[in-house]
Structures are given as C-alpha cells and as structure tokens.
Nucleic acid binder design. Structure first.
Lengths: 221, 221
DNA sequence: ATTTAAAATGACTTGGTAGTCACATTCGTT
DNA sequence: AACGAATGTGACTACCAAGTCATTTTAAAT
C-alpha cells in the first residue's frame, strides 16, 4: 500500500489526520484503538483513511516510523557524540528522552504504548524489532565501556543491558508514580505528558545513576 | 454476584473451568480474552459461566484473587521471616517467585499479564491496587534496612523501590530474552513458562544482586 | 464547456464480542 | 412417583469493529 494519495493532501490536513491518529493510538492499545472513532472525530469518510494507509496495521506501522523519525531527529547528535564519561553520557540520554517528551508529548505517549504493546498476532513483531535494536545499542555501548575498563568485568553485559533497558522504559512510569501524573488525561487535553522542572529531572537522574554506578549498599568507613 | 453456584459444582469441574479461564487470560489481555472462546473449549453453555461469575470483569477479579492466593501460599513463610542479610533475602524473594512459576505456570503467566494490563476503562484499577501494595511493601523493607544502616542514606527510597519493582516484574522478560523462551507457546502446550536450571537462576540472581549492591563501576585498585 | 482522472463518501458486509432469558434438564426431598 | 428448586442451555439481542466498493464529488486538463 502506498501513501501517495495521503501525501497529495494539503499539509495541514495531513497533520490534522496524523495528530488524531496519534491521539487515538496514544490513548488506546492497538486492538482498542478504533479507526471508526478516528474518522468520526476528523469528520472524514471511513474509506478515506483506508485509501491513505491501506489498513489499520499499516497505519500503525506508519505512525511508528513517523514518531521514530522524530525521536531520531531529536537524539541524533547526542547518539553520535563520543562517550567521555559514561555516566554523564547516560544522564544525557535520559534527559534527551525527556526533552523529546516535552517537545512531542503525543508521539512520546504513542511510543510509550508501542513499547508496551502485547498484541501478539498483529503487531508484536514490530515491537520486538525495536526492542532488540535499542537493546543491542545499549549492549554495544556497555561492551565498549567495559573494554575501556570503566565497568566491572565480573557481571554479564546482558544483565546490565537489561537493567538499563528496563530503567529506560520505566522512567516514565516512575515519574507518573512519584508525581501522580495521569498520562491519558494529559493526552486527552492535549497537554504535555507531565510537567516536571529541569531540577526535578536532574535530581532523578542523579539518583538513578548513582545507584547503578556505586550500588545501594552503605560503604564501610 | 455470588459464586455460590460455581462452588456447588464438583471440584473437578470447577478446576477444569478455572484452568481454561486462566489459559485464556494468560494467552490474551483482558479485552482480547473471550468468554465465548472459553465456553466453546469447555463445551459448556455460555449462560453457565455468567451464572457462575456474573460478568467477564468479575471473572477476571476472581482469577486475580485466586492466583494471588496461591502466590501468597507459596511465599508466605518467606515474607514473614526475619531479614538477616538483605541481599540474601532479596535473592530468596526472587527464587520464590521463580518457584511459584515452576509450580503454577498458568497462574504465573496469568499474573504476568495482569501486571502489564493497561485496559484503563475496565480493569486498570485492580492492577494499580496490586502494584501499590507490592511497591509499598518493598518501600517498607528498604526503609527498615536503611534505618539499620545497610543502605545508603543519600538516595531516595522511592527511586530504589522503583528499581526493585521494575527488576521484580522484569525478571521474566529477562529470562525470556536470554533463553529465547516463548511464554505463550508454553502456555498453549501446558508446559512450564520456562525451563531453567537452579544454577542458571542462581547465576542470574547473583548478577542482579551484585549490580544493585555494589554498582556496575569498576573499583579503583 | 467537456472530458477524464483522482479523491471522497458512507451504506453495507462480515465477523467478532458480552450478556440475556425463556425453556429444558437434572437433582434432592417429600 | 411427583413436586419444586437449582442448574444447564444456546439462540438471541445489541453493539462495535475493520474493511469494501459503487457511486458521487472535486479538480485538472483539454
């Protein structure tokens, strides 16, 4: 299915449609998201959206690529930069993630859902793909750091990468929990997913980094 | 809705029904799980299941309580025991979780789904409840350990509790990832969720614990 | 103004769901 | 055996979903 017809649309209409789709898929998982509801809200015919994207599944893929592209744009420079101090770099990765959320709350909310999507029959495969990519990237960075002697050699990179991955996907849950934020409500109202100050973010990052760096155990004096 | 009629059934039939329900809800999330499919597989009338449990939602709640009860049974002694060495205790908590899985793979697989359920309108509330309970338990243990001087005082218990919670719910994902296990396939075939040796489990626990205990940073010699 | 191609439309099909309820069957008690 | 209560049944309702497609509308080209 080509999205030729869609791209012939006036850019403004394209954006309206995209926004509404993101909203629907940010508020519901794949299965519960309804194309019928999207077209009703947009006031366009049902046939149109299928003309533009072919099927619900292809629409979903389109949105993943679209949001992924935006995310890449924001974090590209950061990902390419040399890693001097690993933990400082790691903090930066986080804060970029949070900046992306502040800039594109809808895409961020959508990706939050994608990562947690568990609809095996239909779309689990895309999710696994993107997970593997992120995972392997983390692994490669950690291996490099281990070679440089920055990381203990008696723990498996696998386990470590997993902790990082978990922390990475879990940071939003943590913020939601601590600051009692209701993502869905904010998405509904077109607000940013959460409102935290730069300070609060840094505090959080310092804590997480410190735990991972030196452990939680009280040092003997 | 009372489950009186259900409990009047021969125990064997009760168990058959419960097993099939767990299977359905372990293989699908709340929304995609189908009562129609359950009754078809059981070869009983649709009306019966509604007579037993009232509604899909109440059936779901019943299953949560049922599996939760079983889990409690397995881990009760462990949870009540004095915490001598925290990290050893923590390892025990994990291994009990894994033992529960080996003993009751179906319930374990079901609870895996419950924790990840994101169907806000219907059942998210139960999930939040159980999450808060686990979370607060972890927090209380950590606070106690901090008072005993076993844990650094310069990191927030909140953040730490979150890492533990994440690790707790994530350990199955990790095992699935590392050992390339397909939970769903195993559930379908009535097998345990995964087959790992005691050794492999201990290795894993040692790694995770070690990272959390002393951090990932290479110590200066 | 006419022709033609592209785009928009929404009633319709197909297939799924949870839940209902009038009726049939079974079971325990007198 | 007869009665009455408890239990089992499955066709049925009401609903909503994705996707289709003959028809209409719009826009562009001649």
């Amino acid at each position: 299915m080509s999205t030729k017809t869609f791209y012939n649309l006036p850019v403004q209409k394209q954006n309206r449609i995209i926004e509404e789709c993101f909203k629907e898929f940010a508020l519901h998982d794949y299965q519960q998201a309804s194309v019928t509801r999207i077209v009703k809200k947009l006031g366009i015919a049902k046939g149109s959206i299928f003309q533009y994207f072919g099927s619900k599944k292809e629409l979903y893929k389109f949105l993943i690529n679209y949001a992924g592209q935006k995310k890449l744009e924001v974090s590209k420079k950061m990902l390419e930069s040399e890693i001097d101090d690993f933990f400082e770099w790691y903090k930066k990765v986080y804060s970029y993630g949070i900046k992306f959320d502040l800039k594109y709350p809808l895409y961020s909310g959508f990706l939050y859902n994608v990562v947690r999507e568990r609809n095996y029959e239909d779309v689990e495969a895309f999710r696994i793909d993107s997970k593997t990519q992120v995972f392997e990237f983390i692994e490669s960075v950690l291996k490099e750091q281990q070679l440089k002697g920055k990381i203990r050699t008696d723990i498996s990179i696998n386990a470590l990468a997993f902790i990082f991955y978990q922390a990475h996907t879990g940071v939003f849950d943590y913020l939601a929990y601590v600051h009692k934020v209701d993502f869905r409500e904010n998405i509904k109202q077109g607000k940013p997913l959460f409102s935290v100050t730069e300070e609060q973010i840094n505090e959080l990052l310092d804590e997480f980094t410190s735990i991972l760096k030196s452990g939680m155990q009280k040092q003997q004096q």
